[in-house]
Every structure is written in C-alpha cells, then in structure tokens.
C-alpha cells in the first residue's frame, strides 16, 4: 500500500507517459499519431537533406514517361518522366508549412479575439464579432484570391491570403466556448478571489477552451491543404514545377482515365494526412482532458 501510494505522489508523475498511454489505448488515435508524426518528420527531413532522402530527384526529367507503378517506380512516373513517389514526398514540406501556419495563426488569433469577445462582452464583443462577420460575408476563396492576386503568387502570400479567411471561424468557436465556460461558477469563484480579468482569461478561459479549438484545428488541416490546392490550380499558389499535392492532383487530372496513378497518388496523400490529423485530434482531446487522464494516471 505504502509503495503504491508513493508512486502516486505528486512529484513523480510523468505527464508525457500518461499522454502516451492515452494515445496508445486507442488504435485509431495511434494510427493518426503515426501519420501525423510521419508527415512532420518527412517534411523536416526533406527540407534538411534538400530532397536527398527521396528515391529520385523530383524535378529531373527522364525519358521514362508515364510508366505504371513498378519496383523501380513504386507509384509510376508522370508525363515528363518524373518519379511520382518522389514528387508526392517532396510536396510534404510545402503543404506542412501552409497547413500549420494557416491553422496555427488562425487558432492563435481566434483564441485571443474570441476569448476576449466572449469574456468582456459589450462593445468589445460587438466590434470583434462584427469584424468577423465582415470577413465571413466574403466567399472564402474569392477573398483569398483577391489578396493573393494583389500580393502576387507565392507560398508565403498564400499563407497571408488564407489566414484572413480562416481566423473568423476560430474566433466564433472560441467566443462560443468562452461563453459557456464563463457561465460556470469557477469563473465567479476566481473573481471572488480577486483575480484580474486578464489572468482569468489567460489561466481559466484559455485552458478550458483550448482542447475544443485544438480538435477543430486538426480537422481543419485537411481543409487548408485542399483550399491551398485550389489556389495552386488557378495559378496563384504553388507554381508549376514545384511539387504540391493540390497542384499535382489538378495537373494529373487529365490522366485519370489513362494513367490513374498520376492524380491519385497526391490525392491519396491529402486524404491520408487529413484523416490522420483528425484521428489524432480526437485522441488529443481525450489526452488533454483531466478526467480521461485520471483513469490512465
């Protein structure tokens, strides 16, 4: 008894170990975690080694045109003789960059503005929410197109264009969550203790609404990649020789009947990453919930 008690003592519980146990407990979450980690590791490794880890140079043209999948080219080659697998893998960094920056910045902005609007109420809320309404009143794609067209096509500009489209959703979500957290008694309790509003927002509101936003963000990663691919398709995102999943898919589209591996491989990559992150998101919500963690601690 004494020894088990000792184990539970505050000072030597390992949070990471608990997280791992929660994630491990569900095969779906585990799958999501594997996909997400693989995606991130691949993206970083590819940038660091400058494409050296890829089986072929993703830009090199060869005479092996439109070859079906084989041992030499597991996903075949495209109309210019480039290895499809290498091109799909080489697209990971650029898609990771766009997806994480857009979702990350949108989430940070949403958390701040939404938390503030929900907690302060009154004029602050009115102003912030009407501004989100203005942004939401544009069709997202049109707004992004307008911005990126004005700035000129590039990956960075695509991020600049997508963030204004993305943040209002997070603000609305954060505000709604804040309203429900705010009505709970521990906020009143905290005020009764004499906490300043800034502290309450930072230390009571944010930690309580963060899991919800995080889950939404992981579901959203796939959406960002898809929208970015639309920008690329129109010619305002990634530029032609650059491997990018959306661009690869739309470029290969005309070969769907005759040489299906060319469009399907990058499309599958989008699908796998999107599904992987949403599975991970579900698991993370559990992992962040003290109630669930308790049963694994």
């Amino acid at each position: 008894m004494a020894s088990t008690r000792k184990f539970q003592l505050p000072f030597d519980r390992n949070e990471a170990a608990i997280t791992w146990r929660v994630v491990k407990s569900s095969p779906m979450t585990l799958a999501g975690a594997v996909i997400a980690v693989a995606f991130v590791v691949l993206a970083i490794a590819d940038v660091v080694t400058r494409d050296a880890i890829l089986p072929y140079n993703p830009y090199a043209l060869t005479t092996q045109l439109l070859r079906p999948p084989s041992l030499a080219h597991p996903l075949g080659t495209d109309d210019l003789g480039r290895d499809v697998l290498s091109r799909v893998l080489a697209a990971a960094p650029i898609d990771a960059e766009v997806a994480f920056s857009v979702v990350g910045v949108a989430m940070a902005l949403g958390l701040l503005t939404g938390g503030l609007a929900g907690y302060r109420g009154g004029l602050t809320e009115e102003v912030i929410m009407r501004v989100t309404d203005i942004f939401l009143s544009f069709p997202g794609i049109v707004l992004a197109l307008a911005i990126v067209a004005a700035l000129g096509p590039s990956t960075l500009h695509s991020i600049f264009a997508l963030v204004p489209v993305w943040w209002p959703t997070y603000t609305r979500l954060a505000r709604a969550e804040t309203l429900s957290v705010k009505s709970q008694q521990f906020i009143d309790s905290s005020r009764a203790v004499g906490q300043r509003p800034s502290y309450i927002i930072g230390h009571h509101i944010f930690p309580n609404i963060f899991p919800t936003l995080l889950v939404y963000a992981t579901l959203d990663i796939g959406n960002v990649i898809l929208t970015y691919s639309i920008l690329s398709f129109i010619g305002l995102g990634a530029q032609v020789p650059t491997p990018e999943w959306g661009l690869l898919t739309v470029q290969g589209e005309s070969y769907l009947r005759s040489y299906p591996w060319i469009p399907i491989a990058p499309a599958l990559a989008i699908l796998v990453v999107a599904v992987g992150f949403s599975l991970l998101g579900d698991g993370l919500r559990d992992a962040l919930d003290p109630k669930v963690r308790g049963t694994f601690g």
């Binding site: 709970q184 008694q185 521990f186 009143d188 309790s189 905290s190 005020r191 009764a192 203790v193 004499g194 906490q195 009571h204 930690p207 309580n208």
Partner: peptide, 17 residues
C-alpha cells in the same frame, strides 16, 4: 476581493476549475 472580502458558492464542484 480576495484580500478583505471573499465569497464561496453553493456548488463546490463547479467552483473549481
């Protein structure tokens, strides 16, 4: 609040974050 004046509430469980 909290230095001179304090309050505790009816439902203790929802009073804790």
């Amino acid at each position: 609040r909290g230095t001179g004046l304090s309050m505790i509430f009816q439902e203790p469980l929802s009073s804790l974050d």
